[in-house]
């Protein structure tokens, strides 16, 4: 590219981010409305997809943006789910927004705790620590059965109507709407975050932590901060799951849930919030359709899909689509 080309591009680039975010919100809303009318009998599944999306977005913050390898991220999601559930069942806090706030706080605390542990290691050690963390959380929830219901799960969560107006109905319409609103709010806040100076600092940490410390910034402190934010996001997802399904099971705190979240992120493309959306929808929809058609081989097919993506589209589905479209527009006029 020659210098005048770049100069001509500058004003466009400056205007672009906000427009893209608005388009992002519009696409989410359009997809939400389409989902509502196309699959009226599957709203519970769609709501669960939204909750998992929040988990995958949260994972994207630490893995995609900061480069932390973790197989224990469901600890943050599960903490939010259990906190919201216990608040409702044991302490009678059944106002849904309060439950979500409690879930966010619990997720943030779980993020702080697991961040402090996981960030002590690097590479393989980090991965092993994250696996230890999820097992410890799982075991703690299992042992504290007075509050969590242990392996039977925590049931009897009966959230109040949203704003005292919208009752959680049997068809899951309210829960779906509630989930969409939460998702859009989180998405907008995260777009602001990843574009902020702090977001840039975190991208720098992923690319070269030594350079970041040579600039005088603390890698560790920044990563822990991001872990806390990520925990709040995952916690909101967990709380949404508790509010919408009205039960919390140990599977929300499982290694499988963590690993699947990572698979969804890689599938969609790490390091962009849109990739987290795409990966979650594709994976969960796939799971739903294929496991119904062929319950024995669905994991085989997911495995094959994953291998194909990692080998032929290492940036994930969304990342590869972006690269392709850029190549097309570049080679155009």
């Amino acid at each position: 590219m020659s210098a005048p080309d770049i100069a001509a591009l500058q004003p466009i680039q400056a205007a672009r981010p906000w427009q893209r975010d608005l388009i992002g919100v519009a696409v989410i809303l359009a997809a939400a409305i389409a989902g509502y009318f196309l699959f009226p009998d599957n709203l519970a599944l769609l709501t669960r997809i939204i909750a998992i999306m929040l988990l995958v977005l949260s994972l994207d913050l630490v893995t995609g943006y900061c480069g932390v390898a973790t197989l224990g991220h469901a600890a943050l999601f599960g903490a939010g789910a259990y906190a919201a559930g216990i608040a409702a069942v044991t302490f009678g806090i059944t106002e849904p927004l309060s439950m979500v706030a409690i879930g966010a706080i619990a997720g943030a605390v779980a993020g702080l705790v697991s961040g402090v542990v996981i960030l002590r290691g690097h590479g393989l050690a980090q991965l092993v620590l994250s696996i230890a963390v999820i097992h410890l959380f799982h075991e703690a929830a299992n042992k504290a059965s007075t509050y969590t219901g242990g392996s039977d799960g925590l049931s009897g969560i009966a959230p109040d109507p949203v704003f005292g107006l919208f009752e959680f109905d049997l068809w899951g319409r309210t829960a779906y709407g509630f989930g969409i609103v939460l998702l859009v709010l989180v998405f907008v806040l995260l777009r602001i975050l990843v574009r902020s100076p702090f977001g840039m600092l975190c991208r720098g940490i992923r690319q070269d932590p030594v350079r970041i410390s040579a600039m005088g910034a603390s890698v560790k402190a920044s990563l822990i901060k991001m872990y806390v934010i990520s925990g709040a996001v995952a916690g909101i997802g967990g709380a949404l799951n508790a509010v919408s399904t009205q039960v919390v099971g140990l599977d929300s705190l499982s290694f499988t849930n963590s690993a699947e979240a990572l698979v969804m992120l890689v599938l969609g493309g790490a390091g962009s919030l849109y990739g987290a959306f795409v990966g979650t929808i594709v994976f969960m929809w796939f799971e739903h359709v294929v496991s119904a058609a062929n319950p024995f081989h669905w994991l085989t097919i997911v495995g094959a899909l994953l291998i194909a993506v990692v080998l032929f589209a290492p940036k994930g589905l969304y990342g590869t689509a972006v690269t392709l479209s850029q190549r097309l527009t570049r080679s155009g006029p």
């Binding site: 100076p197 702090f198 840039m200 600092l201």
Partner: peptide, 22 residues
């Protein structure tokens, strides 16, 4: 972005979670 980040870091503003150096 490199230089923007370095300036913000020097001024103690690299931890800001909103806005942009632009």
């Amino acid at each position: 972005e490199h230089i923007g980040l370095a300036i913000l870091q020097r001024e103690g503003r690299s931890g800001r979670m909103a806005g942009s150096f632009r």
